[in-house]
Amino acid sequence: MAAISREEVAHLARLSRLAVTEEELDTFAGQLDVILQAVAQVGEVTAADIPPTSHSVPLTNVLRDDVVTPCLTPEEALSGAPDAEEQRFRVPRILDEDVAS
């Protein structure tokens, strides 16, 4: 049985903001299926008492003093912008949908 369907891949592409083509969907669906079947092996590790590792460095409380450091100039900040207006980054209209805060 396939680990992932073509529809699921299309959903993932939407979530990931990738306007994939129909042709790509066919290719990716097959490839992701192979990969996901292979990586599912991690499920064989079943012992419940294994803590997860998110960081390999044994550090905690790496904090910065609350001291101001130099900013970029607005010119530098906007230097890579595909489009700018009024010293702001310009973007096309945003769909009127709920935004998390």
Partner: peptide, 19 residues
């Protein structure tokens, strides 16, 4: 933009990660 800017391997990994 992301469709045109990323190659297939990057897209595959983004989708696997999202999954």
């Amino acid at each position: 933009t992301r469709e045109a800017g990323f190659g297939p391997e990057v897209k595959r990994r983004i989708m696997i990660g999202t999954y």
